[in-house]
Design a protein around this nucleic acid. Sequence first.
RNA 1: GGGCCAUUAGCUCAGGUGGUAGAGCACCGGACUUUUAAUCCGGGUGUCCCGGGUUCGAGUCCCGGAUGGCUCACCA
Length: 508
Amino acid sequence: MNPVLDENPLVQSRLAKLEQWKKQGIYPFGQRFERTHLAADAEQEYSRLEASQGPEQAAHQLQVALAGRIVSFRAHGKASFAHLQDRSGRIQLYGRLNELGEQGYQDFQKLDLGDIIGVRGRLFRTHRGEITVQVDSFQLLSKSLRPLPEKWHGLKDVELRYRQRYLDLIVNPEVRQVFVTRSRIIASIREFLTARGFLEVETPSLHPIAGGANARPFKTHHNALDMDLYLRIAPELYLKRLIVAGLEKVFEIGKNFRNEGISIKHNPEYTSMELYQAYADYNDMMAITEELMATVAEKVRGTLKIQYQGTEIDLAPPWPRVPMLEALERYAGVRAAMLADDEAARSTAARLRVDLPPNATRGQVINELFERFVEPKLIQPVFITDYPVEISPLAKRKHSDPSLTDRFEPYIYGREMANGFSELNDPLDQRQRFEAQLAARQRGDEEAHMMDEDYLTALEYGMPPTGGLGIGVDRWVMLLTDSASIRDVILFPHMRLREESEGEEAPG
RNA sequence: GGGCCAUUAGCUCAGGUGGUAGAGCACCGGACUUUUAAUCCGGGUGUCCCGGGUUCGAGUCCCGGAUGGCUCACCA
C-alpha cells in the first residue's frame, strides 16, 4: 500500500502505458459497455449449442459481448490467451493478429493484468477443450495502475485481505462465495419470515438510552440538538413498542454496535435479526428458531448435516430442550441444591475456583458456572432454557419458579447462536427489573441496563403476551460457511488505524 | 488490557552460530498463431515494519514502539 503512486517501478510502467493509450486518443477510463452475456451464461449457452448442433457447427456461431477484469495473460507471438473475470466467473479470451489487425493486436498485448475491458467475439472450443472467446474487438474500460496479488497463491496476508477486501475478492473465489452465501442466508430469512406474516421494520440506530441488552455502548453526539446519543446495542425495546402498537408480528435485520473487545467471535458492529410475535411465548420462539435455521441451512447448503471446522453438526429439528440447572447438573455435576440461594451459590463457585464479584447473585453464579463448564460441551444444537431472572431483565418469570424466566438460548458448537424469551409485559415488574439493573450499575456494572421511562410508559398502555427472538447473523453465517473467524464473514471487519509511517512518537 | 507468535521485492515465501539480500509468480526486453501455474533466452526491481542500542560490521543480537494473528479476560 504505497501512498506515493509513482515510486513503484511496476506502477511506473503502467502509468507509461496509460500515457500511450492517451496518445492514441483512447481515454483509458471508458464509458458504459453493453454486455450480452456473463461469462458463465456464455459458456452455458455455447454448451447447449454444441449439444444441439454438434461441436463443428457450433464453433464461431455464438456472438457475445462480455466485460470484466483481465486476470491472466499468455502471449504467444501473433496470438495471445487471457482470462476475463466477471461476477459469474472466468472465461478465456483468444486474441489473434488475424482478427484484431496490426494496431488492435498491438493494443491487446499492451493490456496489463487487472485492466478492465469489454470484448466482442465468437465462442469456440480450444484443442484443450476450454470454451473461449475469439476476440474480434475490444475496448479498454478502465486501466489498472497497481499490480494484482499473485495469481497462484492468491492473497494470503490476513491483514491485507481484511484491509483491502476488494483484492481478496478479486483473487480468492472462495471468499466471494462466502459473501454470496451470506447474502442468500439473509434473503432466505426474509423470505421465511415474510411468508409467515412478519412485517419487516426499521427502528432507530441512534438511541437516547442504550437498551435491550447488557453491553457497553458507543456514545455519539447530535450537534444541532446538542444531545448525546448512543449507537444501539439492540433494537429490542423499539420493536416491542411496535408490538404495543398492534403490529403483532415484526422483525428487523440490522446492525448493533457494542463497545467491547474484538475477537474471533466479536466485531464492534455486527448484524442481528430480531423478531417479535404477539400472543406467542418462548416455546413458539424455539419452534420458529429451529425451523428457520434448518430451512436456511437446507436452502444454502442443501443439507441439514453440515460440517463445521471438521465437526458434523446435525441441524434437523427438533432440538433438545434442557433447563439450565439440569444442564449444570448433567455436564458439571452441580446440583440445584448447591445453588439454593446467593450464599450457597457463591460458596459453590468458590469451591469450583470460579472467580466472581463478592456480591454476586445466585443468577450470576449460575450463569458463570454454565458458561465455564457447560457451554463448551454443547456441540450439537440444543436449547438451554429457564435462565435466572437476575440476568434476564426483559424476560417473563416462570410461573412455577419466579427466580427463573421463560427464556432460552440455542447453542451450536459451544456458541450461543440466539436468545429468546417470553417478553416481560408487566410494566410494574419491568420497573423493578430496571431498578435492580440500576443498582447493579451503581455497583460498577457498566453493562447493566439504564432506566427507560419511555419504554415503561409504552408497556403501561398494555403489550400483549409476546414471544421474542434475536439471532446473531454473523455467527450463523460462520456456521453455514465453515468460517473460523467472524472477520471472514464480514466484508470490512473493524481494523485499527494504521500508524502513520513518519516517526511522530518521541524517541526514548 | 495480559501472554505467545509474526512482519524480508507488487504477491507467496527462503534467508544455522552477526560478514556486500534470495527463489517462484508478477514486471521489463527478445522468440513463439489453440495456450492454460504456457514454454525458452536475458534482466532483481528492496525503507529486510519503525526508532534506538551493542558491534569494525545487524535482516540476524538487545531495548522501546507500530500493526496483525492466536489466546486469556469482557461480550453476541
